[in-house]
Amino acid sequence: MADPSFEEIAAALYAGSPEAFVASRKDRASEVDDAELASRILALRKPSIAAWVVNVFAQERAGQLGEALRLAAELREAQDELDAPALAKLGRERRALTRRLAETAAELAGSRGERVTPATREAVERSISAAFFDSLAASAVASGRLLWALEPTASTADIRDAVAGDVASLEPAPQRPPDELQERRARREAERRLAVAEKDQATAERELAKQDVELQALRDRAAELAEKAEELEAELARIHAAASHVERDMPEVQERRATAAERVGAAEEAVELARKALDAL
C-alpha cells in the first residue's frame, strides 16, 4: 500500500479537532520517514475555524458538495445563454443552496462539539459561494485543505495561498457529454416557455374570474330590474282598470248631478216665491 501523500496527510489533519491540531501535526510528522515531508507537515498552519468547518464538510459530505459544485459548473457554462429573469431565478436558487450547505456544515461542526458563531457561519457561506463562482475555488473547497475562508472575489493567487498543498492537482469536476448538455439546455428553454405560458394562463384565468364576477353582478341587477318592472306593470294595470271604472261611472254621476242641480234651481225659485209672499203680508 502506497504511503499517503502530503495532501492526504494535510486533509486528515485539517478535518481533525482544532484544539488538537498542533499535537496531531507533531505526531503525524514523527510518523513519516521522509525528512522533507516531515518538515512540510510541521510547517502546516492551523486552519481558521471557518476553514475547518468547510474542510470537515468537504470530507464528510463529499458527495453532497460535489453534486452542488457540478451544478454550479453547469450554471456558469449556461449563464450566457439565459435571459435576465432566468439568471435572477438561478441566482436566488444558488443563494438558497449556498445557505443550506453552510447550515449543514455548521450543524456537522456542532455535532463535533465546536461552537459555530454567526460570523463563522457567514465566512463558511462566503467560501461555498466562492466555489460556485470560480472553478479553482471549487477545487480548493473540495480539497478539504483550506487554511482560511475564501471570498467570492478572491483572485487565483488568493485561492492558491488559502490551500495547503497543490490545488492544481485536484481532479476537475467531470464534464457532461455535449449531447446531454444540449439536452439540458433544450429542457431549460422548454421549462422557460412553460413558465411563460403558465404565467399567461394564470393572468387569463384571473381576468376570466373578474369578468365572471362582473357578469353575475349584471345578471343579478337585470333580474332585480325585471322584477321591479313586473311590479310596476301590475300597478299600471290596476291604475288603468281604476281609470276605466271612473270613465264608466262618470256619465251616470254627471246625470245625477244635473238632476240635483235642477232640484237646487227649483228649490231656489220656491224659496224666492215664498220670500216674496212673506214680504207681501
Rank of each mutant, 00 (worst) to 15 (best):
S111E: 15
F133Q: 03
V116S: 01
D279Q: 10
D158G: 12
K89I: 03
A226E: 11
A62L: 08
K89R: 13
L75S: 03
P177Y: 11
L87K: 02
E191S: 13
F132L: 07
A131C: 07
P47C: 07
Q182G: 04
A157G: 03
A164R: 00
A73R: 03
A2E: 11
L13P: 00
V56E: 00
A243V: 15
A261T: 13
E74M: 09
A223V: 05
R206I: 14
R219T: 09
V56N: 00
E231Y: 15
V213G: 10
R219N: 04
S127Q: 02
Q201T: 09
L218F: 11
M250P: 02
Q254Y: 08
R176G: 10
A229K: 09
R184P: 01
T98D: 01
E151S: 05
D33R: 12
S129Y: 11
T153G: 07
R256S: 12
P251L: 08
L136H: 01
A20V: 11
V53H: 02
A35D: 07
R238K: 15
A23W: 05
Q201G: 06
G110W: 09
F132R: 00
S39Q: 12
A168F: 14
A260N: 11
L146I: 12
L44W: 00
D27C: 05
L225W: 06
E77S: 06
E67I: 15
K276A: 10
A96H: 08
A266N: 07
A140R: 00
A242V: 12
